[in-house]
Simulated assay, not measured.
Amino acid sequence: MKIILTQEVSGLGAPGDVIEVKDGYGRNYLLPQGFAIAWTKGAEKQVTVIKRARSAREIRDLGHANEVKGQLEGLKVSLRARAGEGGRLFGSVTPTEIVEAVKAAGGPALDRRRLELTNTVKSVGTYPVRIKLHPEVTAKFDLNVVAAK
């Protein structure tokens, strides 16, 4: 099955890429989740629009990615979340909340879809967070989750 990605899917590609996947994977996962659209000649024309939108929000080049990496790695990111007895959170911390915490700490605006968490944040503590800024640049910073009063 030939599809056009509308969002970045790790292991497959970036928005605007035309790829070939197994029928079931495309039909049962990528299309219903909105990660892709079916390939047609008409949809092929939308690829330029998707790529233009991607370039507008993407980090411009390798130098800019390294600059953002430097900002992130020197940043102290703290997130307040409601917690119960023993430091267990009510729910878990989402990528959107992490991006907002980075912005509140004085960091750059980030794309939540590029965040990579090694494990789910469900308790108070410090967690390593990786973000893929560029195909060649990955930044790492620590997220400190504290209990809200």
Rank of each mutant, 00 (worst) to 15 (best):
T94L: 10
K2Y: 09
T118A: 15
E85Y: 08
Q46P: 04
V68H: 05
R88N: 07
L72Q: 08
R27S: 01
K41H: 12
A147M: 06
I50T: 06
L143K: 10
P135W: 04
E100K: 13
L5G: 01
D23E: 14
E85C: 02
L133H: 01
I59F: 00
K122L: 03
V9G: 02
V124Q: 08
A83H: 07
S92G: 01
P15G: 03
T96S: 14
L133R: 12
A101E: 05
A105V: 05
G16K: 08
E8K: 15
R60K: 15
G87E: 07
A83I: 04
R54L: 12
G26R: 09
G125W: 08
F141D: 13
V93T: 08
V129H: 02
A43Q: 13
R112F: 02
A65L: 03
R52H: 05
K51C: 02
L115G: 00
V93A: 06
Y29R: 14
A101Q: 06
P135I: 11
Y25N: 02
A81C: 07
S55R: 15
D17S: 06
I4G: 00
V137G: 03
A104L: 13
G34F: 00
Q46C: 04
T126W: 10
K140H: 14
G11F: 01
D61V: 10
A105I: 06
G13W: 09
T138V: 13
G34Y: 07
L5A: 09
L62H: 07
V49Y: 14
E8Y: 04
F141T: 04
D17Q: 14
G74E: 05
E58H: 10
E100S: 08
H64S: 14
G106F: 00
K45D: 08
P95R: 11
T48Y: 11
A105F: 01
K149I: 03
G84K: 08
D17F: 10
I59H: 04
H64L: 11
A38R: 15
G13S: 04
N144S: 14
N144G: 04
L117E: 10
R130L: 05
H64M: 14
T118V: 10
K132E: 11
L117W: 00
L75G: 01
E136M: 09
Q33I: 11
L79R: 03
K122V: 05
N144L: 15
K132D: 09
R80S: 11
G11L: 11
P95W: 06
R60I: 13
K76V: 04
G13N: 03
K51H: 02
R52E: 12
E73H: 08
R52G: 07
E136L: 13
R52I: 09
I4H: 09
V99K: 00
